[in-house]
Amino acid sequence: MNIVSTADLRRTYGEGETAVHALAGVTLEFPSGQFTAIMGPSGSGKSTLMHLLAGLDKPSSGSVKVDGHEIAGLHDTGLTMLRRERFGFVFQSFNLVPVLTAEENIKLPMTLAGREVDQEWFDRLVDTVGLRDRLTHRPSELSGGQQQRVAVARALVHRPAVLFADEPTGNLDSRSSEEVLNLLRQAVDEFHQTVIMVTHEAAAAAIADRIVILSDGQVVHDGAGTDAEGVLDLMKAVG
């Protein structure tokens, strides 16, 4: 079943002569339990696509469906609820609330929604991300990699339908990157989570089940995952 799908999705910035077509007709389907990496050169529209998929931005035309329902027409509250219930987010940086501890940050989506945290699930997550002894620390007391792991745990705590990650390893060294990527992989394999990740690192994309490559706002490749070498070849081929 498709959790998220788009049809002829377009997003244009500006008007007339100076208009930038960040997305120029993108049709994609994201089935449940799949790990998709979205790649492409800088300015190709990766972030724009992800923002539209996650309902953070509105398309100029075309549709985005979540669970088969069109989300383009939803108002702020509807979108907030959707994010709260169905989506998890990991950004490149600045993922955590500085005044809350790691534990509080992880539980944030549940607390905001006023829901009980499933303690068993929480414990499992914490063990998976390996932060048991850091739970009472505040973000400023955690390393960048640890912060991103907290962010992943937070993105999973409410068992979202889709986890969106925009360059989650962009700010990390290779070891920390690997930890975070492995976590995402685990989320798909063990928790049957759907993950859509934007990245421009071949090593990161290599972990995905499927690779979508954008160029100038259009899909130029959509195929099965491959190793880092393969990804680089793909990039070269379309670039």
């Binding site: 907030t80 609820m81 998890g88 905001l112 937070r154």
Partner: peptide
């Protein structure tokens, strides 16, 4: 940024 992030993870207006 912090506010935006809070909104992203589900804080209502």
């Amino acid at each position: 940024r912090e506010l935006g992030m809070l909104r992203a993870v589900g804080m209502t207006r």
